[in-house]
Design a binder for these strands. Sequence first.
DNA 1: CTGTTAGCGCTTTCAG
DNA 2: CTGAAAGCGCTAACAG
Lengths: 347, 347
Amino acid sequence: MLLSRTRTSIVDIARAAGVSKSTVSLVLQKSPLVSETTREKVNAHIKELGYIYNRGAANLRQSKSKIVGIVVNDLTNSFFAELAVGMDMVVQSAGYVQFLAHSGESVDRQREVIASMRENGIAGLILSPARGTEASDIKALVGGDIPVVVVVRNLPGAKVSTLLSDNYAGAKAAVRHLISLGHSRVAFMGGFQDTAVFGERLRGYRDALQDAGIAAEEKYTIHSAPSRAGGVVALERLMTIPERPTAALCLNDAVAFGVCDGLRAHGLEPGKSFAIIGFDDVIEAKTAVPALTTVSVDPQGMGQRAAQLLLKQINSGQRDQEAITTSVRLVVRQSCGAPVKQLEEIE
Amino acid sequence: MLLSRTRTSIVDIARAAGVSKSTVSLVLQKSPLVSETTREKVNAHIKELGYIYNRGAANLRQSKSKIVGIVVNDLTNSFFAELAVGMDMVVQSAGYVQFLAHSGESVDRQREVIASMRENGIAGLILSPARGTEASDIKALVGGDIPVVVVVRNLPGAKVSTLLSDNYAGAKAAVRHLISLGHSRVAFMGGFQDTAVFGERLRGYRDALQDAGIAAEEKYTIHSAPSRAGGVVALERLMTIPERPTAALCLNDAVAFGVCDGLRAHGLEPGKSFAIIGFDDVIEAKTAVPALTTVSVDPQGMGQRAAQLLLKQINSGQRDQEAITTSVRLVVRQSCGAPVKQLEEIE
DNA sequence: CTGTTAGCGCTTTCAG
DNA sequence: CTGAAAGCGCTAACAG
């Protein structure tokens, strides 16, 4: 808790170099106002004394910081972990640091951690909301003081920039693909009716069927936890229904992997007797199942985009902007072998 | 970058409540020295003005912080993501926040990010080192000012607390298990000779064979990237060697999953014609392959332990302690279904 | 129990 | 080009 007995500061090096502390400060800021000779002298002493810049003090003085907050609902899910890695890349290379926290889908924890980050002076926040987060929550948490970017899950009504993938179109394209392969009994597996993501993907699934003149059977929509374990459960359910589907669109890759696990437990090879489409295109999808096709969201790319968006807002001093929802076009691709198509942006 | 035009401070609320700022400060610290009446009055104004505590200012004044740094080599790998989640849990509930960064196995990035964290005043650091990190690096980075806990990968010679799993014993137990099932041609798959973890696990593998009077064939050790994709590659290599092994211990779960992927591509069901043991016991291992057995490290538990260790050191003001290496005993378990045994600690 | 005062380490006018 | 002085928001003696 205690940081050294009072580590060497700007005045120590000023004294050592025989200059004033303001001069040292200027050197630190690489100001051109200081002569080459003094700069070198000062820098020498900085090295010698092992001086560490105290950014906290500077932040206080300037009322600004180069810290961003990132709160993610579930780091245990590769999709979100990769999302975080993408953000990390751009945050780091912009010279910022991040408080990165995991809410574990708990809105309470999410609230606490955001409050804590605010006290610690973040300049902006990226939030991948916990299930059950309300639009009203977020403006209560950050009083419009700092820019906020919401990712992945939509918070309808929240007046913040939001970066979403076009789940509807992606799901629709995936199901169209299955239909073009001759499937007519297609299931939608995984997830519960509690996130916008689920709703959008389901809607895409239904509309694609409808467009093809196929009635969407209610029993073909199989709810389960949106995890790998959930996929296994969903498959078990699937096996019991009459007129069993021949293909499925899964809520996400985790569910798809679980469905594959389940099929194999029944001695069936995924992609052979039963076609599966995953969703998100997590790194593992690249080798998980030879026959796996996914709707590609490219989590790392999305994370990068979100972070860029936030930094732009921070630097432009933007606040309280109208909800600018950007959606990322999704492409259906064969996971193994095929090159990943580029992320495209649409309004 | 700019934090509001100068947000409401302790003096604003002091003025509003008609008290001095020190009184407000005392209220904030829940000091018993302040009367119930004034406390309530002050609190009322705090709410009304939407005051946000400026922890940075307090940190500066007290030369301490409740921020820890966590640097992880690869968040993309579920093992490390779960490790981070475990740390997050205890850090958060101790009222700390964390800078959490991903080094992507780059020692340069690792160095930069640690430097940045130090400038930002972390009270301690947990490091899961990037490949190639030297013992000398770390004392250069943190000058013994703050406590450091190194996890997962050993940095022989570094004088810091280290939390490792007993890789040698775990690997040995796993191979003994395979031998007891009747396997005599056992491969070791995945990884390169560049981390201590690899060396320890390999040594355990070899010694178990030796103890059973089986010669460890050099060709049965198959190097590859320690990732899922690497596992696929390793399996391809394996298929080409004469007197093909009948079982394998994999460097980690990611490799094990890749090996399974590869087997399936060859029409072989993992666990049937070829036995596999993974390593780490990532969440997915719980459903990934019905027949999968892993050496259980319990990443989240290990993360919690590491964070507790760090916090203890922070609170006790410990510095420069001798290298206290704690190793966690590993158990071999059937991944699916079987209950996870508790983490045990040994000297 | 409450107010006064000084100062954490830095930046920033403003003079010299 | 360099120095002196003030102040960011908070805490910590110390008086009253």
